[in-house]
Simulated assay, not measured.
Amino acid sequence: MADFNGELTLIKIESGTTDKIGNPITVESSAIVLCGVKSVTRAEFWGSAQTNMKPEIVFEVYPYDYDGETIVEFAGVRYSVIRSFRNNHERMELVCERKVRDG
Rank of each mutant, 00 (worst) to 15 (best):
Thr70Tyr: 07
Ala2Met: 10
Arg98Tyr: 08
Ser15Ala: 03
Glu73Asp: 10
Arg78Gly: 11
Glu69Ile: 04
Ile21Ser: 02
Thr51Ser: 09
Glu56Met: 15
Pro24Gly: 06
Tyr64Gly: 05
Thr70Val: 01
Ser48Glu: 08
Arg42Phe: 04
Asn88Gln: 09
Arg78Ala: 14
Pro55Ser: 09
Ala43Gly: 04
Tyr64Ile: 13
Asn87Tyr: 15
Tyr79Val: 00
Ile71Met: 09
Gly22Arg: 02
Ile82Ser: 07
Tyr62Cys: 11
Phe59Thr: 09
Gly68Ile: 14
Val37Ser: 07
Ser39Asn: 15
Lys54Asp: 11
Glu73Phe: 07
Tyr64Gln: 12
Arg101Ile: 08
Ile25Gln: 05
Val37Phe: 07
Met92Ala: 14
Gly68Arg: 03
His89Cys: 03
Phe4Asp: 01
Asp67Ala: 14
Met1Thr: 12
Tyr66Val: 12
Asp3Trp: 01
Val95Arg: 00
Thr9Glu: 03
Gly68His: 08
Ala75Glu: 15
Phe45Val: 07
Glu90Ser: 03
Val77Phe: 06
Asn88Tyr: 01
Asp65Val: 04
Gly103Cys: 04
Pro24Cys: 03
Asn23Thr: 03
Val40Phe: 08
Val37Tyr: 05
Ala49Thr: 11
Leu94His: 10
Ser29Arg: 00
Asn23Phe: 01
Thr51Ala: 08
Ile11Leu: 00
Thr70Ser: 10
Glu93Tyr: 04
Lys12His: 08
Gly68Phe: 12
Ala31Cys: 05
Cys35Phe: 11
Ile25Trp: 01
Arg42Leu: 04
Asn5Lys: 02
Ser30Arg: 13
Val37Cys: 10
Arg98Val: 14
Met1Pro: 09
Arg42His: 05
Leu8Ile: 00
Arg78Ser: 15
Met92Gly: 10
Lys20Tyr: 08
Gly22Val: 04
Asn23Met: 04
Ala49Phe: 05
Gly6Ala: 05
Tyr64Arg: 13
Asp3Tyr: 02
